[in-house]
Amino acid sequence: MKYDVTVSIVNYNNYEKARQAIRTLLEYTHGVRMKIYLVDNASKDDSAVRLADEFSAIGVVFSDKNLGFGAGHNLVLDLIDSDFHAIVNPDIILHSDILAELTGFLRKNPDIGLCTPAVRYTNGDPQYLPKRNPKLKYLIANRTPGKKWENLRRHYKMLDEDLTEVTDIEFASGCFLLVRTELFKQIGGFDERYFMYFEDADLSRMALQIARVVFYPYDYVVHDYARSSAHSLRYLLIHIGSMFKYFWKWRGKAQPLDTGKQKKL
């Protein structure tokens, strides 16, 4: 059966949050035919088995080791038969039929290959996730307090742009995005050289070689976010390693967009 939209959620010892993500996907999605795939990265808490028992309609893919974020999502590449595919973090909470809204939007705009909606914290505050392509100066500014770096931080997070309308962007966060399934397969899914971090920036940049990537501001999802690299030396080192992999891969390659002139729909 071909679906309007397939969804992949990569889980690692995250039963409660993954359960909430699946529950809200099923609760609020009515306007499209949807299939959810849970990819379990060798969890030790039996979360995948528990979720499969609780939600019989989902597909479960078991990995015998923790492959990381992108490689985990790639395990569904040969399984999905859909027009669109959603990458969804286990810490995402839906409050509306956003998948129907976004698939309808993409059907009306065939030049757009990937889109991401607004994202909010659990308290309702916005998360500033549409970004420009990563550069070392942006990443330093993002982690360094003080007004000296504020202009760079704002530029990186596109806070110097009017994002009240659909806007072309360079970097769509992997916490929640919708991509044309054909495009996702054409670019081979995520680059598996990244265990975690920067794989979404890389995917966005790959997609931009073929189609538009846009921010859709008219609806939102909630992201129950914990910044792991800010609290763990291990994740910080993974973050730094992924950063160097990203910069090496894209060294000397032209930007796909003129970042000073973001296109509006």
Rank of each mutant, 00 (worst) to 15 (best):
R154I: 03
Y121P: 00
V119R: 01
P134H: 08
P117Q: 03
Y138R: 10
L159E: 15
L163D: 01
L163C: 11
T167A: 04
N123H: 06
P126K: 05
C115M: 01
C115F: 00
K135D: 13
K135E: 15
H155R: 15
G124K: 06
R143Q: 09
A118K: 03
D125F: 01
K157Q: 14
V119C: 02
T167R: 01
V119L: 00
P126D: 14
Y121R: 13
L129S: 00
D160R: 06
T167D: 00
E161T: 14
A118V: 02
E161H: 14
I140N: 10
T122F: 03
P145D: 05
L129N: 00
P134T: 08
P145N: 12
Y128L: 12
N151E: 09
R132E: 06
L139P: 06
R120T: 01
Y128E: 07
L152S: 07
P145K: 10
L163W: 02
P126R: 08
E165V: 05
K148M: 10
P145E: 12
E161Y: 13
D162V: 00
K147C: 06
I140W: 09
Y121D: 05
T122K: 09
T144Q: 10
P126L: 11
L152R: 13
P145H: 14
R154Y: 04
K135T: 15
P134L: 12
T144E: 10
N151P: 13
Q127E: 06
R154K: 15
M158E: 11
N123I: 02
R154E: 04
